[in-house]
Design a protein around this nucleic acid. Structure first.
Lengths: 159, 159
DNA sequence: GCTAATTGGTTCATACTATGAATAAATTTA
DNA sequence: TAAATTTATTCATAGTATGAACCAATTAGC
């Protein structure tokens, strides 16, 4: 390892870091725009939209459970759920076994909306993949996995 | 192309779309966490932090120019800049050639902070790359570029 | 069985991100 | 010079999010 090679390598790394930063920034912006599009399309604040999507497998969710899944505080969930109730997409009943607990479930309208949103998001990602050939798809997925792991590792070491 | 192969392909695509969605979601979350970390570390709301970073090449920026760069409305910029002025990171002077325009520039403290933040972000991205070998770095960058383009293309066709 | 601790949920104050309408002041155009 | 345009600010509004204080119900311990 001579000195020159080391320096060139450093410069390459700096250049690559900058490019990585830009690419991630652009992807982030794209996702931001998509969020905005979805709130318009489905007429829901994004937090409520995400909440609807949580009723995938489960029939009933609690405030606490939603808070865990959305990674927000309970009082935030109260707010979100109230919004969804006002829009008739979700309803609350008292847990027959424990009067503290409110069981939250989708109304038929909420089920429809939830399915609609999920289908839209699936389709978007399908569209992205359709712009690539089979090898590119495989490559993107495996390299993205690599990147995601590296990002999370760096994040861990940060905290 | 027989029917079976087509069906298998469709299923593969659906599976890949789901995986893509998950990976992007995890990367997004990671970036969210990083934002939060930075606001804590630098003691600034993220919008103000981003604003500081805009004074890279330019010596002076206007409210209008910042609004364009941050892609927000002018009144939002007024708010952000006021926050930065209160913290002594930025100062405003009247444009000698046009009294409508306020020229905004970094104070020495703001310059220091701005450099600090930029250096931190560069280092983060360098750390990510350092967890990968040379081939993986190249692969990630070119596949990310591919993905970003596909995402933007899909976004365009959406609007 | 009854107190004490815990759990589940709501309310309220606060902070941040962001928009858009209304407005004021300065400048440009006709 | 009057009208139109440009630059920036203020204010009302909406959304995201936290955390403290609180109430009610349940569970643990004695």
């Amino acid at each position: 390892m001579n000195q020159l090679a080391g320096k060139v390598n450093e410069e390459l790394l700096d250049y690559q870091a900058l490019r990585l930063q830009e690419l991630i920034g652009e992807m982030l912006q794209c996702c931001e725009d998509r969020k905005f599009y979805e709130t318009e399309k489905f007429g829901l604040p994004y937090a409520e939209l995400k909440c609807l999507l949580l009723f995938g497998g489960e029939r009933y969710l609690t405030v606490k459970g939603i808070a865990r899944k959305l990674d927000v505080v309970k009082s935030r969930v109260t707010k979100i759920v109230n919004g969804l109730i006002k829009k008739g997409l979700v309803k609350q009943i008292d847990d027959p076994g424990d009067a503290r607990i409110k069981l939250i479930s989708l109304t038929p309208a909420g089920q429809g909306k939830s399915r609609e949103i999920a289908a839209f998001q699936r389709e978007l990602h399908r569209q992205i993949l359709l712009r690539l050939d089979a090898d590119e798809r495989k490559g993107i997925l495996s390299y993205l996995e690599l990147l995601r792991s590296a990002m999370e590792a760096v994040k861990e070491q940060l905290v």
